[in-house]
Design a protein around this nucleic acid. Structure first.
Lengths: 137, 137
DNA sequence: CCTGTTGTAACTATTATAGTTACAGGTGCA
DNA sequence: TGCACCTGTAACTATAATAGTTACAACAGG
């Protein structure tokens, strides 16, 4: 099980997308919905902002999306948070004197790449708008 | 990034599958190839044994696969290790008084399920034999 | 009986994640 | 101008997962 940052990021972006009164959108308000600490929210928002997904201004309430929900794929959100993440860790320094140890890392990389590509395809196929539609349903 | 247990498990199973002289197969020998502690190996083997993938006998060197490499999918290995794992964590107790908070968990579960199914398909499509072939190549 | 092995419990170390406190500095309004 | 409220960020703590280690009981086979 991986961390919950992806879930929190989607929650935050959904909240920003669905709240029309921007003056309500403070880190404190968002933290109340996510049920966490305002600083955790501001930290996450800083990451999403750096990735160009939203804007904010010091000292002023109100966050705004910079990408239309229908154009914002979950993959873009995922990448904003975790960067070019690797799915599974590979144990380092297996014994190079062993036939298996020598090639296992490269082999596993191939295996994990195919798994990751399948995942990526799914994340690419879903947008924030899809999430919003399901939230409304 | 997830832990390296999946990688270690595949390494161990590959080693067992490719070592014909079973008397060499001690937890110490395997640990030397993986580059970890013998106890870590024995612990992992205990899990794989419990899942019915291999056999061992107290006090006696030599592990043996109970499933043919061509019939042993990576999914089976994955499930042996992590059980019915969830891919991404979902933050708990989002605010039920909020429209987003109220439905986000269920929505995210749907999203993550679709991602997991794609992953599962990939893991199901590859067997230990495929790994062995790549190790030999 | 002795050596080497497995199976396990118990402890420590390391790291990632999340939560918290604190505060500098911006914003806008009375 | 002063004040209340906000963001951005650093620094620290708490918790939990993972891996590594030590220790030892029990078994196998010469």
């Amino acid at each position: 099980m991986v961390n919950s940052r992806f879930s929190v990021a989607i929650h935050i972006l959904s909240l920003i997308a669905t709240t029309s009164d921007k003056s309500l959108l403070t880190s404190d308000f968002i933290a109340g919905s996510v049920n966490t600490n305002p600083v955790v929210v501001r930290r996450m928002i800083g990451v999403l902002k750096k990735a160009g997904l939203l804007s904010s201004h010091t000292g002023m309430a109100g966050y705004e999306l910079l990408v239309e929900p229908k154009d914002l794929t979950l993959l873009a959100i995922y990448q904003a948070i975790d960067g070019p993440e690797q799915l599974f860790a590979i144990h380092d320094e297996p014994n190079p004197a062993c036939a298996v140890g020598q090639k296992i890392q490269h082999t596993l990389e191939g295996v994990y790449t195919s798994v990751w590509l399948a995942m990526e395809e799914q994340l690419q196929a879903q947008t924030l708008q899809d999430v919003l539609d399901q939230l409304r349903a």
